[in-house]
């Protein structure tokens, strides 16, 4: 027996709906980091000098490079979406691959940055870390916690873009059906945006 098909079915494609869902999800991500920003604000207010001392340990050049890398990746993903919408799938695939490449560059940079800190024993629980004054321990804890959580988001975002690339390649995403690509792009922009806040808070404010 045939099923009754409703005009407002939840099983049919709904691009507007899936974008609405993505925006709501991004909102929860902002709040997730928001909790950490509250803690950062409070302890920065309590220990302004230690936070300044802590920031001297971080390398502004590496941070700047990573910022440029991420901003460029946001550009490539946006261009990739437009290319797909215009029907140029091949270019879209290349731009998505470029985005993933930038994600990789970011992570490699992060790896060197973190391992230098860990070599100096600045990871929470290590010897040098335990010798630090109170405010600096908080600074480094927040540094590792927030950039770590951010790095996790980079990985998730890169995997998402990888899936998108596969789907463009096998034709599931196309110039008439690009909601998923757009959503992955939105997620990637969010990851970028969070870094735009993390970078000045940890590296630049003096």
């Amino acid at each position: 027996m045939e099923h009754l098909v409703l005009p407002n079915s939840g099983l049919t494609r709904d691009d507007e709906g899936s974008k609405l869902g993505m925006w709501l999800f991004l909102y929860t991500e902002v709040l997730l980091f928001g909790g950490l920003f509250i803690v950062y604000t409070m302890y920065r207010y309590l220990y302004p000098d230690s936070f300044l001392q802590g920031s001297y340990h971080l390398s502004i050049p590496i941070g700047t490079i990573n910022t440029i890398v991420l901003l460029t990746s946001s550009l490539t993903v946006a261009m990739g979406i437009t290319a797909l919408q215009k029907g140029n799938n091949k270019l879209a695939v290349w731009l998505m691959v470029a985005t993933m490449f930038f994600a990789l560059v970011f992570m490699v940079n992060k790896y060197f940055e973190w391992s230098a800190k860990i070599e100096h024993g600045l990871f929470p629980g290590m010897d040098a870390y335990m010798q630090l004054p109170r405010g600096e321990t908080l600074f480094f804890f927040l540094y590792f916690f927030m950039t770590g959580l951010h790095a996790l988001h980079i990985v998730v975002g890169a995997v998402l873009i990888g899936v998108v690339t596969m789907e463009i390649k096998n034709g599931k995403q196309s110039s008439t059906n690009f909601a998923f690509t757009e959503n992955a792009g939105l997620y990637w922009h969010l990851v970028d945006l969070i870094w735009i806040f993390l970078f000045p808070l940890f590296y630049l404010i003096h």
Partner: peptide
């Protein structure tokens, strides 16, 4: 929660 918000926004009967 996200699912219900989108459902209620998008899928109400005409």
């Amino acid at each position: 929660g996200l699912n219900f918000i989108v459902t209620i926004h998008r899928l109400r009967a005409s």
